[in-house]
Write a protein that binds this DNA or RNA. Sequence first.
DNA 1: CAGGAAATTGACCACTTTTTGACTTTTTGA
DNA 2: TCAAAAAGTCAAAAAGTGGTCAATTTCCTG
Lengths: 224, 224
Amino acid sequence: MAYKILIVDDEKMLTELLSSHLQKCGYEAFVAENAEQTISMLNVYPDLILLDINMPEIDGLELCKMIRQNVVCPILFLTARITEQDKINGLQAGGDDYITKPFSLKELTARVAAHLRRDERSKCTPKIVSSQGLIVNLAERTIFYGEKPLNLSNREFDIVEFLMRNANQIFDRERIYEAVWGLNAEGDSGVIKEHIRKIRNKLKEATGREYIETVWGMGYRWKK
Amino acid sequence: MAYKILIVDDEKMLTELLSSHLQKCGYEAFVAENAEQTISMLNVYPDLILLDINMPEIDGLELCKMIRQNVVCPILFLTARITEQDKINGLQAGGDDYITKPFSLKELTARVAAHLRRDERSKCTPKIVSSQGLIVNLAERTIFYGEKPLNLSNREFDIVEFLMRNANQIFDRERIYEAVWGLNAEGDSGVIKEHIRKIRNKLKEATGREYIETVWGMGYRWKK
DNA sequence: CAGGAAATTGACCACTTTTTGACTTTTTGA
DNA sequence: TCAAAAAGTCAAAAAGTGGTCAATTTCCTG
């Protein structure tokens, strides 16, 4: 069974981004937007908690203490700035680590993985998915069409994985950029166009089929 | 003693193919074609079960639950297609993993090996292991290729042991550092690169073969 | 404590991936 | 039909990654 991660934050944008990304990484994500929801969410017994300290009307540290009374899993703070004093306060409240905003999704998942690893219980993340004749190995980040390997680069794999997981949905380039890079897209740099091209070539090469459809004026979608 | 694998499927073609392949890989294979045979086969105490869910007249999931009442070994589902709901149902029934058809034999054996290995790790660790012609003596910390000693240094041995124990899994340099040094890696110092080089040289020198594979942008893995 | 092996570091090079920007083609709607 | 907007293409620059080597530091052992 996948690790369960509880995200506590009041910014919808961020929680959505985080939960979709964590799901992409094979975790099960839960979201709580306030103290009340958080406490009731503890019933799912999360394996790790991401907690924003700077929420209006809620004292993150107090919330952390309350959580600690009920669970022992790692608690990682999300915070804008961090002073030495913040660190001490946080640790006293029962936190395990800090992630300072802004952070990349890569960094976040690395830290999450590190803590889960340290916590060491049997890891059972789903590894292999298959779709339309493509066999996707999430652990090795490889995709095969039968015996033929796709040989995607890391970025290419990220994009394919994202589109595949959200098959049939249309995403414009900005959205894809945000989802995969974990950053806000500033204008259209054209990176996505180029990556989509490379991906399409490799897919066509190996399978002879079209997987990524262009919806004119809207974006791209993975055909299912 | 060889690992015992029970194959549960009603397609004779497939079971024959699988059992002959698994035998070639050094496993002992048993076949059951229906629920009744499966239950009675459990008396051989298989180390792993391959279970086709989509058999006519038999509900694979029910069968899985019945098996689970008797044994704790890993159960891998063979299935044509897989939806999110299938996954949930399967896990609730006590399954450990899915292999979606069509699959390559290579993939199948890799997954089988992975599960057996995971199971093995929870048992006691053997003193002497052999892999691809290498004979590893964990007590004396020596590795021989036939009569030829490898003469690895301590660190080198640690790294090889770690990679070997987790064969086929990919580890980036940071992970290897954490696993072998037991410390958090602060940035990439390049130590691993250098050790990998030394190890590769010694392996090549003694065996003429390649054991450690580089997965670009991902890390290293011990080829098995 | 000296001498040698082992471990580590940093610099360098070759190679791959990622990004960029100029340019072409396609699509759309006035 | 034509012009503007959107999408696609290409090659080259920039950034990142891994392999190698030599130099330095650390660790043993006699």
